[in-house]
Write a protein that binds this DNA or RNA. Structure first.
Lengths: 159, 159
DNA sequence: GTACTTTTACTCGGATACCGTCTGTCCGAGTAATTATGG
DNA sequence: CCATAATTACTCGGACAGACGGTATCCGAGTAAAAGTAC
């Protein structure tokens, strides 16, 4: 059981977009190049982020992706849901009900526990926003790294 | 991303074993019959529980499985680790390092968050024991269900 | 210079292929209780 | 009746097949800016 790497790609893509000046955009091609991930697959992910309302996209030449919401409002959990869907980590397979020949409507024992655990998990992902990640990045990175990124962005930025 | 159903099978198997009198055993065949799951696959899971030290097994005719630890000491997290391994839910794929051309030794931003989230998740699974599930089962089930199970166990119990 | 057409560089969304993992099956081997056999 | 052998019913562990989902690729379609063209 593993969490998809798609989440990682999406989060860091958003983190890059967050460094752009207001209303500026970056093409999917540029994003994938900087993240060193598959271009076509990243585009698939970006579409999911668009559908989730986290970023907006502009077609045509001089098009690209741009952060739609403010970074303070983008929870990591939102990104997770956008990429992986709302399905919970655990889903009962009815062993409990089969065991006791119960109706399907009652929740099973394990589900309750797993649901509680997942809630605890989600709460961490909900209180962590893109803004806090951005902050952490600025605090922990050397100026050299950041300026290198920002100058690269400047070359590739659209509009 | 989903948690294996193997966990469900294992937990309820343990819950069944917990209803046996001291030192009594149940065969893998009987377990799978009551849980309505694949017999051979359940045996695979039981072996993992044996290797994890949660249950002990006795080969030969009149053999079977028996709870090794006391139910108060068996955390659901132990079962999870036995079935799914110690691997964490999230494992970085190095996007962060590729992005900034950093050395591998530094942890990436997302890893920190995901690790914290997983910790919260684990803590719920650690404070839930087989004993507490057993308790919950006794409290929420009708007497009819429980006596039906226990009489069935009496028929199939070994030793 | 203006209106129109073509080219270009993007996003969009579906179809598809690959591959690892989880589920499930099968088989031979080991083990111990039970049963059968021989003296 | 006792000792030994054969049978039986389990667990053990590996090899293997099938299904499913995540990763990745490709393609045609849509869109809009830029470039080219005609008058």
């Amino acid at each position: 059981m593993k969490i998809k790497t798609g989440l990682e790609q999406a989060v860091y893509a958003l983190l890059l977009l967050n460094r752009l000046p207001k209303h500026a955009m970056l093409s999917g091609e540029s994003l994938s190049e900087k993240l060193h991930v598959s271009s076509t697959y990243l585009q698939k992910l970006m579409r999911k982020l668009v559908q989730a309302g986290l970023v907006s996209s502009v077609p045509g030449v001089k098009g690209g992706f741009r952060l739609l919401a403010t970074p303070e409002d983008i929870q990591i959990y939102d990104v997770y849901v956008a990429v992986e869907g709302v399905e919970s980590l655990y889903h009962s397979n009815g062993v409990f009900h089969a065991m006791f020949q119960l109706a399907e409507n009652k929740t099973c024992l394990l589900s309750d526990v797993m649901e509680e655990a997942e809630h605890a998990w989600q709460s961490v992902l909900k209180r962590t926003t893109l803004a806090s990640l951005h902050q952490a990045l600025n605090n922990t990175s050397t100026n050299d790294c950041l300026t290198k990124i920002d100058s690269w962005l400047k070359e590739r930025v659209v509009l």
